[in-house]
Design a protein around this nucleic acid. Structure first.
Length: 809
RNA sequence: GCCGGGGUGGCGGAACUGGUCAGACGCGCCCGGCUUAAAACCGGGUGCCCCUCGCGGGCAUGGGGGUUCGACUCCCUCCCCCGGCACCA
């Protein structure tokens, strides 16, 4: 008997799969009917950072199990792979170590591909795409143009995080405690022209359509909170001297009579208008400038500050003149950038009023006449009524909310309104390694999109990737200046590149038709495969990638480029693989790569082990100790299967205990993977079967048990399973139908009945299955051990048929 | 502060809709076999406590309380750990 040599059989079968293109699927012929057995399996694409880590191994092994499981259930499974290959880390590596980002990227992709093949994942490699390839990003640019034409991509000045040392804009997540994550310089707030996608236009659709997709509740909650829809009203406050109506958004119109002052955000253009020409102008402007320049980080932590403008606004409900302040606790980018302040019923307004000695007036109080405590804020206004509120006094708060808005609405001073916290997506980056934005600036014609037939705008080479006050692309003068397609004059190219999240917002669509060179994808083909049936990836993308992709698909749907409205029908988040309590990542330097493990244990054992470590959706601590145990299991399977292969095959599998165990295992594994979507317990189930088989090698059902174990473990350990399957005299296990449990064998003739007295187990007896309750009770009472605890009393009985009888005295 | 996830043996974890003395499966550890020896492999044991050592009794799923014939599972309350969000009017 040959011993188990993982390297040999893994190389062997990987070569077979590659030669036979075992996991490639073809696209439908034009006009082909929809395939109800299609299954689009996708895991989030990796960033090619050099080496895969165990988090990747977990992610793609789960996907691989699902892929095999579905394939063997008769589904046509599309399971592609690609690389999110633009982005800052590679650019930084190029700056630090020299070399071109493209070279580094392609080297890393080659290495990741090698590692993926070595793990034996069932990937359709014919569809591989990478974001940095011209054939890919020309279509990213094409899609940008479609968004631009539809008015969904636009340019505007906006405050950004600016690192004065690195001379670049930083994303919020790269600002740590107000400093640049890379160089530690204090980040400044700057106002710069940026490109935005109008994702806010889809806020309602993004919110409502969450109902239509099968996603984890917590992910939906994150998106709901991020979109942040709130219903309220827009109310006009008039500044009589300036003939100016300032709108404010509020969710508490019921507290309008309690507004004692008014606040405008420091960045608001209103500041200038309010103080222009007044004696306070200098003071207010200088406060506003300093406050606006402070980072968000700083503004959140420091105490609220503000300054009085000298102006007053009229409260529309009572004509009262209330002072207008400029204060840093009001945000420009939420609502209208101005608020009515009701210190009695809003904690922030209260804090501010305390600090600047502004009046506090209670207008909502508990129904029972109890006096509200100043400075205590209750969200439960349902039982409260209005006080000090003219004709609305005495009205329940929720009714008053509506009544006041209606009343103001009649006078043209207010209306119901809905506000979102979601902001438009800023996607321009002042970096080199990204997709160029196909836009030109012409002195005479203005902003001109690059005509479709001039795509792609190829990413040019530059001398230095490090930004020097302007984006790196601007340093290549030859590239930068071109001809205006409209007037033929000189035009300057947009030198910013796109955020990599743009690339990853549509990659799953490109996979369906990856070699199309006249469109990003064919409508019929994308509709055949799409949407993704099962998506797997980290929850860290909940409000980034997972929201952006939904937005993209909705827009593309409305542009008639595809026929569905959601990209990912079902979503699963794998947990983090941690090391030393921290998430594995290259920047932390705590990465364990698969190479050494595959070398030591074989790909099959590594795949089994990462899934056996714990529930796939929970974080797990990486620990190499137990990996040896998986090798032990595979060796044991190897031994017992080869032993069973020596035994003659039988027509009819005899219904022995072992055969029954095999069928039970089929049922468990199928239910666990198919319905429960859990991946650790099926391995334990097959281990039990193998253990039982090794204890009964002479059992007439031994061969059947071995075949069952091999067949069930195939999605996890495809190489050894394939090898053993052929030793058992069969071929191509990866194409075999998934085994089915024989229901009749699952029924036991006799069952073990548990007998409890007062909820404590006192005996267990063998009884025929399917006995009526009275009979079970009678048998329970007949038990000597039970009688010993009954003390001759007549018990009440609770029966779980075929399982348990509980006698209570 | 708010929201979410979690707390089960020395360790990772099982127990799926409350129902077979909770602890499957694996790691580790202990004992034994094989061996000159070790590794590998094979067999057995392994929650805690008490004991008249019996296929005996009791206690155990972060703490406390409750519902139920019966609770790891449901409810209340408290403690701890891990994430995410955080002046959103």
């Amino acid at each position: 008997m040959d011993s188990y040599e993982p390297q040999t059989i893994e190389t062997k079968w990987q070569a077979v799969w590659e030669r036979e293109r075992a996991f490639e699927v073809s696209n439908p012929e034009p006009g082909a009917p929809r395939n109800p057995r299609k299954f689009y399996m996708l895991e989030m694409l990796p960033y090619p950072s050099g080496e895969l880590h165990m988090g990747h191994v977990l992610n793609y092994t789960i996907g691989d199990v699902v892929t095999h499981f579905r394939r063997r259930h008769g589904f046509t499974v599309l399971r592609p792979m690609g690389f999110d290959s633009f982005g800052l880390p590679t650019e930084n590596a190029a700056i630090k170590e020299g070399g071109h980002p493209r070279e580094i990227t392609e080297r890393n992709i080659a290495n990741a591909g090698r590692q993926m093949r070595r793990l034996g994942w069932a990937i359709d490699w014919a569809r591989e795409v990478s974001a940095h390839e011209v054939e890919y990003y020309r279509w990213t640019q094409w899609l940008f143009l479609k968004f631009y034409e539809a008015g969904l991509a636009y340019r505007k000045a906006s405050p950004v995080n600016w690192c004065p040392n690195d001379q670049t804009v930083l994303a919020n997540e790269h600002v740590v405690d107000g400093r640049c994550w890379r160089c530690g310089a204090v980040v400044e707030a700057r106002n710069m022209e940026q490109w935005f996608f109008k994702i806010t236009a889809y806020a309602d659709a993004l919110l409502n359509d969450l109902e239509t997709i099968d996603w984890p509740a917590r992910t939906k909650t994150i998106q709901r909170n991020w979109i942040g829809r709130s219903e309220g009203a827009e109310i006009l406050f008039r500044v009589e001297e300036l003939d100016l109506d300032i709108p404010v958004f509020t969710t508490r119109a019921d507290t309008l009579f309690g507004a004692t002052f008014f606040v405008v955000a420091p960045e608001s253009p209103l500041v200038d208008r309010l103080v222009d020409g007044t004696e306070r102008a200098d003071e207010v402007r200088s406060y506003a400038r300093i406050a606006a320049a402070r980072s968000t980080e700083e503004r959140e932590t420091r105490e609220k500050t503000g300054v009085f403008t000298g102006r007053y606004a009229t409260n529309p409900v009572n004509g009262e003149q209330i002072p207008i302040w400029v204060a840093d606790y009001v945000l420009m980018d939420y609502g209208t950038g101005a608020i009515m302040a009701v210190p009695a019923h809003d904690e922030r307004d209260y804090e501010f009023a305390q600090r600047y000695s502004l009046p506090v007036r209670t207008v909502v109080a508990p129904r029972d006449g109890e006096v509200p405590i100043e400075g205590a804020f209750s969200e439960h206004t349902d039982d409260e009524v209005l006080v000090n509120s003219a004709q609305f006094t005495g009205k329940p708060a929720p009714d008053a909310k509506q009544a006041i808005v209606e009343w103001l609405s009649e006078q043209g001073k207010g209306k119901p309104a809905i506000n979102f916290r979601l902001r438009d997506w800023s996607f321009s980056r002042q970096r080199y390694w990204g997709c160029p934005i196909p836009i030109l600036y012409c002195d005479t014609c203005g902003v001109i999109p690059v005509p479709e037939d001039q795509l792609p705008v190829v990413l040019p080479d530059v001398e230095n990737f490090r930004p020097k006050g302007e984006p790196p692309l601007a340093s290549n003068q030859e590239w930068l200046w071109t001809e205006c397609p409209r007037c033929g004059g000189r035009a300057r190219r947009e030198a910013d590149t796109m955020d990599t999240f743009v690339d990853s917002s549509w990659y799953f669509l490109r996979y369906t038709d990856p070699h199309n060179d006249h469109a990003p994808f064919d409508r019929e083909i994308v509709d055949y495969w799409g949407p993704v049936d099962q998506y797997i990836g980290g929850i860290d993308h909940a409000k980034g990638h997972l929201l952006y992709s939904r937005f993209f698909v909705k827009v593309l749907n409305e542009l008639d480029l595809l026929g569905f409205r959601e990209p990912f029908q079902r979503l699963f988040h794998q947990g983090w693989v941690k090391q030393g309590g921290a998430k594995m990542s290259k920047s932390r330097g705590n990465v364990t790569g698969p190479d050494v493990l595959v070398e030591a244990f074989g790909a099959d054992a590594v795949r089994l082990y990462i899934l056996f470590l714990g529930p796939a959706d929970q974080d797990m601590e990486w620990n190499e100790e137990g990996a040896e145990g998986m090798v032990r299991f595979v060796r044991r399977l190897w031994r017992v299967a080869l032993e069973a292969a020596e035994r003659p095959a039988v027509e009819q599998v005899p219904p022995t205990d072992l055969a029954r165990k095999a069928h039970e295992t089929i049922a468990r594994v199928t239910d666990d993977i198919g319905r429960r979507f859990v991946f650790n317990t099926p391995i334990a189930a097959v281990m039990e079967l193998v253990n039982e088989l090794s204890r009964a090698p002479e059992d007439p059902a031994a061969r059947f048990a071995a075949e069952t174990a091999v067949s069930l473990i195939q999605p996890y350990a495809p190489h050894v399973a394939e090898e053993l399957w052929s030793c058992l005299g069969h071929g191509r296990l990866w194409e075999q139908p998934w085994p089915e449990a024989d229901e009749s064998l699952l029924q036991r003739d006799t069952i073990e009945l548990v007998l409890q007295v007062n909820g404590k187990v006192r005996d267990r007896i063998q009884v025929p299955a399917g006995l009526p309750e009275e009979e079970l009770i009678a048998r329970a009472k007949a038990s000597e051990r039970v009688q010993a605890h009954l003390n001759g009393q007549e018990p009440r009985a609770f029966v779980v048929p075929d399982k348990l009888v509980n006698l209570v005295v």
